[in-house]
Simulated assay, not measured.
Amino acid sequence: MLPSHRVADALVTVTADRAPVAGQDVLVRQTDHEFLFGCTGFERDIPLADQWFGLFNFATLPFYWGQFEGEAGSPQTEKLMEMARFFKDRGCVVKGHPLAWHTLAPDWLLERNNGEIAAAQVERVTREVGDFAGVIDMWDVINEVVIMPIFDKEENGITRLCRDIGRIPMIRLVFDAARHTNPAATLLLNDFDMSAAYECLIEGVLEAGVRIDALGLQSHMHQGYWGEEHTLSVLDRFSRYGLPIHFTETTIVSGHLMPPEIVDLNDYQIDDWPTTPEGEERQADEIARHYRTLVGHPAVRGITYWGLQDGAWLGAPGGFVRADGSAKPSYHALQNLIRGEWWLPETTMRTDDEGRLPLRGFRGTYTIEALGRTGMVTLGNGSTLGGSAIECELVP
């Protein structure tokens, strides 16, 4: 059953050469969701494209500064642009992740003073947001700021700068640069810390007048599924700011669970972490429950799964696809939701004497075909459960 806030209906007038197509059978086919069902696109070079596009319409690409610009002045713009266009040309929304983060910061920042680091960070944000505008118009602007000034795993210039100027000025620095460069971009604040510390940070940023377009919440569940009750409690806490919520990094494993005493997921990397048949059944059940919970909450606009294939992140069996490329039960469970339960089946409808037909379905895009022509309509902005009148012009 579709959550009512994900459904819209409209009275569509089908036209050809601006004349109503009256009393005709037309084929209606859903082609995409308004909701962002996402995954990392880091693995684009592996032969899993059909499986990736069988689920997702939203790709997150890696802009880790230390990898993107390992040598100052030599960014990997062309390589990332090729990746971004690969997804954009196939109808996907593309997001860059992240523009500012203490982890994987370039080593060459350590040679600079804090003022120079701030200038380099602004230059980096301005360059990437500007270069990719029109291809990537969504960014995780800054990542994991709650821990940023106290991060002690390794010395890095971003932690040093954040410790010096503070979390909120750091956020303002990069958000202002991104906003100025591409005012139309969707800019996210992203964190793994679901404690009150993140809430306090959000409140401080909003009170300081920094405009955030969406909140990113990470949900790596290597130590066990959160469960519906906990997930809903997190959503209730963070939805009170009135901002759209993206679950930006989600994983559920299909092997043994990470020991509960591990604090940092990055500290648990073992030689062999296999998927198991019983773990795969558990993962499939939990994936379906997790996605139902998130899609069922009106504040959530998107979910990004952190790796299609097992081993993609921290060697964990967290993917929807095994290491050998075969689909796991979780893949089919999610596909049954996205392309089944939450997808309008291809159907033939007949227009009335004025060329009209009622269309109701999951918010997204639909094609209408008749007379050897095709048109497209969108159920979403402007079309609601109350109904709205829209036109679909068929073209050869």
Rank of each mutant, 00 (worst) to 15 (best):
N266K: 14
N57H: 08
V210P: 02
R237Q: 07
S326T: 15
T231Y: 01
M349P: 02
N336E: 10
T248C: 07
S195T: 12
Y198H: 10
D164G: 05
Y366K: 00
R179T: 06
A178Y: 02
D193G: 09
A59K: 04
H180E: 11
D32C: 11
F192H: 10
L187H: 00
M1Y: 08
I136H: 01
L189V: 12
L206T: 04
A370E: 05
P149I: 11
F53D: 00
L359N: 01
A214M: 06
W65A: 01
G372N: 07
E78H: 10
H97K: 03
W313S: 10
I368N: 01
E280G: 08
A8W: 03
Q218M: 10
F63H: 04
V263C: 03
E203T: 15
G361W: 01
G318H: 01
G311W: 00
S326N: 10
S254F: 07
I212Y: 06
Q51D: 13
M221P: 02
A284M: 03
P98A: 13
G54E: 03
L188P: 00
R339V: 11
S4Y: 09
S388I: 12
R356M: 11
N114F: 07
G73A: 09
G318L: 05
P169M: 14
G311S: 02
T351W: 06
D9E: 12
I147D: 01
P106G: 06
P345G: 10
T159E: 01
T181F: 06
M1V: 15
E199D: 11
V125Q: 00
A327P: 03
H332V: 15
R18H: 12
A184G: 14
P396F: 09
V253R: 01
A196I: 13
L334R: 02
T251V: 14
A49Q: 07
D193W: 06
V395Y: 04
F238C: 09
I158P: 05
R350K: 13
R356S: 08
L110N: 15
G279D: 04
R29Y: 09
I46L: 14
V12P: 03
W108K: 10
A333R: 03
V14C: 05
D264A: 12
D152K: 14
M81K: 13
V174N: 01
H102K: 05
G204N: 01
D9P: 03
L2N: 08
R112M: 15
E249R: 05
T347I: 15
D353I: 14
W343D: 00
D45F: 14
L27A: 14
